[in-house]
Design a protein around this nucleic acid. Structure first.
Lengths: 229, 229
DNA sequence: TTGACTTCGTGTTAAAATTACACATTACTT
DNA sequence: AAGTAATGTGTAATTTTAACACGAAGTCAA
């Protein structure tokens, strides 16, 4: 079936920058393109927006189709509209960034069609289209956002230790943080709930596990809350 | 001439939230629609993106066509993609926000076709489409941005007094600020250049005029500079 | 069982930033 | 010359941030 319009129209796509944290380094999920253009290049997961779905829906649908990931933290990033970003025709892409918890990672591994792989953000391969620019924008946004909204929890498992949270902040922001000051600050927000469990690993003292309180999180977000580590 | 595609495509538009400051209150520029749908309703200036122009270009072009404004501070805001935001067909709109200096205002008044008018942001009429939501998003962004980037100058004339700058911050943020602390803080950034002129008005002591240093401004922006009043 | 090893968990002090607060100055007006 | 109105300026108290070290708790191996 053909669709005809009075004036030429750009194609509309979504592209997603999916971040993950493996405990050591911040990672980004890329897929290998099976088709031209940029066949066999790595690219951000994404695809065309259907005319009867919202942009958010399109992003979630494409993510699930291409990587198997669902139910993750997803926010619109920026819309990229250079005239020649796609060699075939005019394509405008609404970019999103997403944060995944480690439990989701395995799901992502068990993806079907296209090859999907995690890359450390410090070492990503050349990307198709203008995806390098999109990625850079997303990383900058994540860095900025992390310092004034407590979204870091979205990258950790539901139960985590303060050291894990600190490692996350350190690897996203690329800085070292004083342990005592970090704990003091984080706990002062009264956002973390200590669990009765401990995390045992290796030949050393076990660590207290925490989960974060989504109710207080929502309340703070509404106040235009600044998190600042 | 007709244009035909394999799948249906959304129409792509830009909409602009133009802020101005008249010394007292923050204003937004609206135009009255001459055509259906929402004929005679107030709406944000905007229009269709041409297939051979970037999104930024489209926003600037529409602004000039509909309001006469050009060369203003313009940044992409968010892309609105609800399925039924336009009753005619699927329309995705890339929203921008813009800041104008008072000198531009007169230009805006002398617009041609559609009626254009400034409204105080605290008292805007019902808007067409989902423009109320776009406006609210823009105002929130401006408030947020003002507290960590020195974009306030974009709303003032090239020469301004510290009191004018303070009034601007107060009316955008909706708070009162201590005069001495405000001056101390603003001057400490070393971003303002005192002029040899003074601003005389009314039966009282004249005020020192300043301009802001665009070179230092750019340098600070690159550092991921926080302005925070 | 004992000692070595490794990460966890905690408090104080100095420095810096923020907040609160009041009055003399300067020009215009009458 | 006196009245009026906004400008311009400093200090002290409080809060926040930054720097810094060591005992506690568990595992492992001898």
């Amino acid at each position: 079936m053909k669709h005809t319009y009075e004036y030429p129209r750009a194609a509309l796509t979504v592209d997603c920058v999916v971040f993950g944290f493996d405990g050591g380094a911040l990672q980004v999920l890329l897929i290998r393109r099976g088709l031209a253009p940029f066949k066999d290049h790595w690219a951000l997961p994404g695809g065309f927006v259907r005319v009867e779905e919202t942009l958010d829906d399109a992003a979630r649908r494409e993510l699930q189709e291409e990587t198997g990931l669902k139910d993750l933290f997803l926010e619109q990033l920026y819309t990229f509209g250079s005239v020649n970003r796609d060699p075939r025709e005019r394509v405008v892409s609404v970019a999103y960034y997403a944060l995944t918890k480690p439990a989701d990672h395995t799901t992502a591994a068990s993806t079907d069609a296209a090859e999907a792989r995690w890359f450390p953000v410090t070492d990503i391969p050349p990307l198709a289209f203008d995806h390098a620019e999109i990625f850079a924008t997303a990383l900058a946004r994540l860095r900025g956002k992390l310092t004034y909204q407590p979204i870091g929890f979205e990258l950790l498992p539901p139960k985590f230790t303060l050291t894990q949270l600190q490692r996350l902040y350190e690897s996203v922001l690329g800085t070292e943080i004083d342990k005592r000051n970090f704990r003091k600050k984080v706990l002062s927000y009264d956002l973390l709930i200590p669990l009765k469990e401990q995390h045992r690993e290796g030949a050393h003292r076990p660590a207290q596990l925490f989960r974060f309180d989504p109710v207080k999180y929502e309340r703070l977000k509404k106040k235009g809350f600044l998190f600042e580590i």
